[in-house]
Amino acid sequence: MPAARLEVAGLSAGYGPTQIVQNITFDVPAGGRLAILGRNGVGKTTLLATLMGLSTRHAGSVRIGDVELTRRRTSARALAGVGYVPQSRDVFASLTVEENLATGLKGRSRAALAEAYEMFPRLGERRRHLGGQLSGGEQQMLSMARTMLGQPSLLLLDEPLEGLAPVICDELMSMITRLAGSGDVTVVLVEQQIERALDFADRVLILERGREVWSGAPDALRADRALIERLLGVGIH
């Protein structure tokens, strides 16, 4: 599937009656890279979960390309081209690496598994290991590789670097940058490592208490250290 434009309009959502994200509107052009930033608990993960149909939508709409996703189930969104790599690293613990990858083929032949091993050679070395036996970094690679085997047009990444060693973070970010650089997929990244997120994105959206409080180019945010300190509670070098 080619990269698709993501359009989110007036989206309010949460869990049950509790509203967590409120009236969010943004769009990402096909092949674009959006970083969603904010302090802990501001609704970044809920926003991605809502795009994937995993939370309760209260208002608003979501569309990728020409496809209206708003009322679609999670599996239908995945089939429509949304790839989601959640914070929890959704590998199947009782399946081997190869079996985990095979579940993401979506009708493609098993020969396509070579793409995953090319993307992350480490997975090739671990192909007979169970998903539950992998390290955090390897599980993240597996989760991402499996999602990419489905050839998504939109990739949602929820804190892919959380809890990983710096060397693994470098490896993963370099792969994510390469994927996004190919122009075959639109990427929305939620990340706590601000500098890495700013290096990656071509546009930034900042949330506070479930609302959009700032959006713009990464360089504009970099230039305003006071804003970063105020909205994200961190300093950058």
Partner: peptide, 22 residues
């Protein structure tokens, strides 16, 4: 892949849905 996805559903059906399994 069908059988593997069934095992995936047993492990965690939400995860299976996230990769497109009905």
């Amino acid at each position: 892949p069908f059988g593997l996805l069934c095992r995936g559903i047993r492990d965690d059906d939400l995860r299976a849905q996230m990769i497109g399994a009905t």
